[in-house]
């Protein structure tokens, strides 16, 4: 359980985080979204006790992080931005060091190392110095050290940056496979990732919380959510489409001839549209229901301040 109240952080005069308040409960997999420099990493650094807050409080399991940072850090696993590690150590030495600091002992220590090595498929590079590894392996070593003590709270700053699609998939599976009583906070630029693994989205821009709800709610904010687009093999009379029940607006792309029908909020227009097509025998070649365009919503939310 994480409780953040009025959290602010200044760097000299620059306000990186501005009065954030939120609660995160066990079972939440939170996606932190925001443009570069929005304050995501700064917030994560404060949640992990690396940076002190300028104002406000962070309570983790009812313990104030500014007073009990050591005991709080024991239950947090953290992958800092860029997955820093001690490059001169081999992967095994590094994981052993982290396991020792994390107070894993004896048999359990070796079991856990073997488990995370298997989970992140690090067997092949176990005896190679971390400096000599590819970006993808470095990131996975960083992930391995973050989960080695099976933490209650897992904070990952851009965990899939630099990974190829297969590795991204693997990391998402890993996050989804964590038990349900854990808190996971992921920051990312990749919007699909949030829809794929998170059950809660927070959008931060200019240091302030702009959106906090489920990924579905984020999609629903899109004008394209449940919109129907269709292409026809030759020109036909489409005027009737715009008059259908529940259709709010119709747009036609002059170049491609693609027709997009926007529903009224909350309406599902596919049945009506399909019926209309049948009735008029429209030469529809391709029909597609949009799930909402996250990048549009993202731009709208994060840029709203500038346009005002």
């Amino acid at each position: 359980m994480i409780a953040v109240k009025n959290l602010s952080r200044y760097f000299d005069k620059f306000k990186a985080v501005d009065g954030l308040s939120f609660d995160i409960k066990a079972g939440d997999i939170v996606g932190f979204l925001g443009p570069n420099g929005a304050g995501k990493s700064t917030t994560m650094k404060m949640l992990t006790g690396f940076l002190p807050a300028s104002e406000g409080t962070i309570h983790i399991n009812d313990a104030d992080i500014s007073k009990h940072s050591k005991s709080v850090q024991k239950i947090i696993g953290y992958l800092p931005e860029g997955a820093p590690a001690y490059g001169d150590m081999t992967v095994y030495q590094f994981l052993l060091f982290i396991a020792q600091i994390r107070e894993l002992k004896g048999k359990r220590k070796h079991e856990r190392i073997a488990e995370v090595v298997a989970q992140l498929e690090l067997q092949a590079v176990l005896d190679r110095p971390i400096d000599n590894l590819s970006k993808g392996f470095k990131r996975r070593v960083g992930l391995a050290q973050a989960i080695i003590h099976d933490p209650k709270i897992l904070i990952l700053d851009e965990p899939t940056d630099g990974l190829d699609p297969n590795q991204k998939h693997q990391v998402r599976k890993l996050i989804q496979g964590l038990s349900e009583d854990k808190i996971v906070i992921i920051s990312t630029h990749i919007l699909e990732e949030v829809a794929a693994v998170c059950n809660r989205v927070m959008i931060i821009a200019d240091g302030a919380l702009k959106f906090d709800d489920t990924p579905l709610a984020l999609q629903q904010k899109s004008r394209f959510y449940q919109s129907v687009s269709l292409t026809m093999s030759y020109a036909a009379d489409i005027s009737g489409l715009a008059e259908l029940d529940g259709v709010d607006d119709m747009e036609v792309d002059r170049k491609t001839g693609r027709v997009t029908l926007f529903p009224e909020p909350g309406a599902h227009i596919l049945p009506q549209v399909a019926e209309h097509i049948q009735l008029r025998r429209l030469p529809v070649e391709d029909l597609h229901v949009d799930q909402g365009r996250l990048d549009d919503v993202f731009r709208e939310i994060t840029a709203s301040k500038e346009s005002v």
Binding site: K45, T48, G49, F50, K70, S71, Q73, K74, I76, Y78, P80, E81, G82, P84, A85, Y86, G87, I98, I101, R102, E103, Q145
Partner: peptide, 14 residues
Amino acid sequence: KSGSIELLMTLPVS
């Protein structure tokens, strides 16, 4: 410089 201080200081080490 390498940022590993962030790792070290977020481990339960004073």
